[in-house]
Design a protein around this nucleic acid. Structure first.
Length: 507
RNA sequence: GCAGCUGUAGCUCAGUUGGUUAGAGCGCUAGAUUGUGGAUCUAGAGGUCCCCCGUUCAAGCCGGGGCAGCUGUACCA
């Protein structure tokens, strides 16, 4: 705000640019997003969820994102101080606001409470491909249902929703795991207790990277650590060889029929692996039991392993998930503009978070839900060419040949609009050639031209720009004009609507 | 955050061992075409060589420090 700095460089103009991670969205983007959102919402509604809308801004405290031991919000969250010195934040997901809403209105709400929300969320962190600082999510959650039947329903809804937006069966996979199983594995390798909390996190993070790195790289992360290709070093969990192999074994690497790199079709074998890995852990056994129940529900509802699988590499966020977790991934390769494969990560994810509402209320309130990354899903589908970017019907452009006749041109435009045709008058200052160029850029199918000759005869000239474009290879000027005559024709003003419609109907 | 790489026209990039007026292609604007976009030809506009400091008679080029972007990695509700 210092005017001094501005005085130093009086001639410097502000850079017209956006902070990274933010993007403008044009008419095509907006239309495609709205179409996709409509399909997602329709599916959620079918499952009985009610729409809820919450504000972009909440008390930072309500979102629960203060830095540990600091009187300051987490750096990943956009935050500012209000007049009354309270920290406010832009929401970074749609789950924390739901927890606040439920806690605030607990007595009024029917329970279990089925809620869906969609909208922009904000994260102050480094963006990447398919990763923005403002992006759209669409959530569905059930609060007040502790049974894994609710979790199973979430996984099935994820599958149905992805199919509703046009992803074919087989092109996606819903992966399910259970945090209790992971906790059990930690116990089994001797990482129980508060002392080992840090190492447990490191191990879980390493497991989470199974779909990113080969098994040997994971071994390094579980053991001493790993260098990336730029030579940067990541500290490992420091497990001994035995424990490393137990973890790797749990994930199913090297085993047939289970694990991230093996076919996931055999749920029985996967579960058997899990049971072996958590042997001796009560919590781990409970997790296995839950997964088994869910698997039975999937089967009964007709969701086979081509849609929903149990996958040990799914970890999800480390902060609040307490039971089943799920994640949706696209299973086909996506190539970027440069032809290199793009890693998109999961397009949807969620799980059981029994602690989130009880944070506000001292009593246990079970909840489960998931979130679809609408922006990311759209970006992936666009790269695949699966978004039919049908432009909004391009306008008919009425050219201005004689400036003193603007009123009359306006009248022609009004006639088109009254007939329901998207139409506009050229409002710039340039000559006819530039006006044609303008119409071309607008993607207009045709233009309406009226010079003094036509006006005297009470006619307009309608030019088909698409047809006109195909006649560019005329050998000489005469042939060019002659060919052009086929692409443009004169009609009386009263027949203008029919003429324009005729051209538009040419497709 | 950490590491590596890269910053020259709107875009993609050349630019010699440091040397005078920094170039190309594409794009843009206009003319050739009584009043016609896309092709061809011609002309024109457009630059703080990322910023600052230093070395030098002389820096787009060399040195130091910033900043920004890209990639990897970390974190990710």
């Amino acid at each position: 705000m210092t005017t001094d700095t501005q005085n130093d460089k009086p001639k410097s103009l502000p850079d017209a640019k956006l902070p990274r991670g933010f993007a403008d969205r044009d008419a095509l983007d907006v239309a495609a997003t709205e179409r996709m959102l409509a399909k997602i919402r329709e599916t959620y509604v079918l499952y009985g969820f009610d729409v809820l809308e919450t504000p972009f801004i909440e008390f930072t405290e309500a979102l629960g994102k203060f830095l540990p031991d600091l009187d300051r919000p987490n750096e990943g969250v956009f935050s500012f101080k209000d007049d009354d010195d309270q920290w406010l934040s832009l929401r970074y997901d749609l789950t924390a606001p739901l927890a606040r809403h439920v806690a605030e209105n607990f007595d009024k709400l029917p329970k279990p409470f089925r809620s869906m929300r969609s909208g922009w969320v904000f994260r102050n962190e480094k963006p990447g491909p398919g990763r923005f600082r403002q992006f759209m999510q669409c959530d569905a959650d059930i609060v007040g249902a502790g049974s894994v039947a609710a979790d199973a329903e979430m996984a099935m809804l994820m599958a149905d929703t992805l199919e509703a937006v046009g992803i074919a069966r087989g092109d996606y996979q819903i992966k399910v795991n259970n945090r209790k199983v992971l906790d059990g594995v930690m116990e089994a390798i001797g990482l129980a207790g508060d002392d080992n909390a840090g190492r447990r996190l490191t191990v879980l993070r390493a497991i989470d990277k199974l779909d990113k790195f080969p098994a040997d790289e994971i071994r390094k992360l579980l053991g001493p650590g790993r260098k990336d290709e730029s030579g940067d070093f990541t500290k490992g969990a420091g497990l001994d060889a035995d424990a490393i192999e137990r973890v790797i074994q749990f994930t199913g690497w090297g085993d047939q029929g289970a694990g991230a790199q093996s076919p996931l079709g055999n749920l029985g074998l996967t579960l058997a692996n899990f049971r072996a890995a958590v042997a001796g852990s009560e919590r781990g056994e409970q997790g296995c039991q839950e997964l088994e129940t869910m698997a039975a529900l999937f089967e009964a509802a007709g969701y086979d392993t081509s849609r929903i699988v149990i996958d040990p590499s799914v970890v999800r966020g480390l902060e609040y998930y307490t039971g089943p977790v799920f994640e949706a991934e696209l299973t086909f390769a996506v190539k970027g503009d440069d032809g290199r494969p793009v890693r998109f990560g999961s397009v949807a994810g969620g799980g059981r978070y029994d602690g989130l509402v009880s944070r506000f209320r001292g009593e246990p309130v079970p909840a489960t839900g998931f979130s679809i990354g609408v922006s990311r899903l759209l970006a992936a589908l666009r790269l695949l060419g699966k978004i039919d970017d049908q432009a909004a019907t391009a306008p008919v452009v009425v050219l201005v040949m004689d400036r003193d006749q603007i009123a009359h041109y306006q009248k022609l435009v009004a006639m088109l609009r009254q007939d329901g045709l998207r139409a506009e008058l050229y409002l710039g200052d340039s000559g006819m050639k530039a006006q044609m160029k303008y119409a071309d850029r607008r993607g207009a199918r045709c233009v309406v031209i009226q010079g003094s000759d036509e006006r005297e005869r009470g006619e307009v000239l309608i030019k088909d720009l698409v047809l006109g474009a195909t006649l560019s290879s005329a050998p000489d000027r005469d042939a060019y004009l002659k060919a052009q005559a086929e692409a443009q024709f004169a009609v009386t003003e009263t027949a203008m609507l029919d003429g324009v419609r005729k051209v538009l109907a040419r497709g």
